[in-house]
Amino acid sequence: MNVSIQPALKSLRTAALIALFALIGICFGYFFNFLVTDNPQVSAPEQPIAFSHKIHAGDNEIPCQYCHTEARRSPSAGVPSVSKCMGCHTEVATESPLIRQVTEYWENKEPIPWIKVHDLPDFVHFTHKRHVQAGVACQTCHGPVETMDRIAVHSRNNDGPTLFASTTGQITNLEASNSGATQNDHWEMGLCLNCHKQHDVVDGKAVRVAEGGFDNGLDCWTCHK
């Protein structure tokens, strides 16, 4: 009988070819993924009224919770109502063109359509209340808001919590006016977990510890439910 190794060689060649293509595909996929998703950006949508946190929280040192009153009482920090603005601005800077805009909303009995900048995915159930009551500073997650004219966050192109695509022009303006200050880090699960692993709750306050972590704070069901 005539035994030939030719067919075996042939299928080996096919296998090698497939493997080669697969390898190329994987490499391409890896870099494509890197290109598309791992693309840090600064996002800062333009608000209906150019409200400046720098003037309010920075220069005039108004505490965050003067306006964001719900932060210590409820899961959501809340956006202040127009009446909160008018509480001061019936007296303060009434003639400034920006305040006139606020007054207009007030007189029309309409809410100001602020654009949400810090937005978590729907499967994350974060609670402000617990964190504020435990003495976690707002800036820990939100960055140096008191230095920002317009609120800015890091975001990624394709995922990440903030889904606002910002144009390059906006970013340049923003970086100039904010001296480059943005929120510290990407809002991803690692940000929460790192902090939770390093802290424990003692007498209702978050305290830094070497090992351990929040009691009950590392269960997935704490936030995802």
């Binding site: 995915p121 499967f123 009950n216 269960d219 997935c220 069901w221 995802h224």
Partner: peptide
């Protein structure tokens, strides 16, 4: 997985 409260969890995003 089982959490510390004896509950059988289900994490949708995972």
């Amino acid at each position: 997985y089982h959490n510390q409260d004896g509950l059988n969890t289900q994490i949708y995003n995972r």
